[in-house]
């Protein structure tokens, strides 16, 4: 890619990533949440890979890493959901943390935690899908 694209990407990618994180952690207060924020955060990674390119072996290694993050994040979500079963009420997906006051960042009990891990899961899975399709294409041209 040209220098213009590379420089613009360099300037923008961080901001895009930060915006994704903002959407994720304000998921319980404003529209958006884990999925929307995760897609935005994944966008910054995809932007960097598209602008700078990468060789085949690095891409496969990156794919292994993102698959790992994806699986770990979803296991943590599952564990958080199951943690409600171990409290006294035995209710799945129970919001057992204190709720706090409405409108503050640290409120709504478990919801910010779910949002954060779903965000990680979505971001890494979208990067995985993108890398998998790119790797298919690279394999084909050989």
């Amino acid at each position: 890619m040209t220098t213009i694209v590379k420089k613009t990407t360099q300037l923008m990618a961080g901001l895009v990533f930060l915006y994704g994180i903002y959407i994720i952690i304000h998921g319980h207060l404003t529209p958006g949440g884990g999925f929307a924020g995760g897609v935005i955060a994944a966008g910054s990674f995809i932007l960097i890979i598209l602008a700078y390119g990468s060789d085949f072996i690095r891409l496969t290694r990156k794919e292994h890493g993102s698959t790992m993050y994806e699986n770990l994040a979803i296991l943590i979500v599952a564990f958080l959901a199951l943690s409600g079963l171990f409290t006294g009420a035995c209710v799945f997906f129970l919001n057992w943390l204190p709720r706090g006051t409405t409108g503050e960042l640290a409120s709504a009990g478990m919801l910010p935690l779910y949002n954060i891990f779903v965000g990680i899961e979505v971001a890494s899975s979208i990067v995985t899908i993108f890398l998998a399709l790119v790797i298919f294409k690279e394999e084909m041209s050989e």
Binding site: F35, A132, L133, F136, M140
Partner: peptide
């Protein structure tokens, strides 16, 4: 709609993967 979009994303990704394989 959000849930359905997530499902649609998975379906489309799966379909594209199969299409690339078919092309190969």
């Amino acid at each position: 709609v959000l849930t359905a979009i997530v499902i649609g994303l998975a379906t489309t990704a799966m379909l594209m993967a199969v299409i690339i394989r078919l092309y190969r």
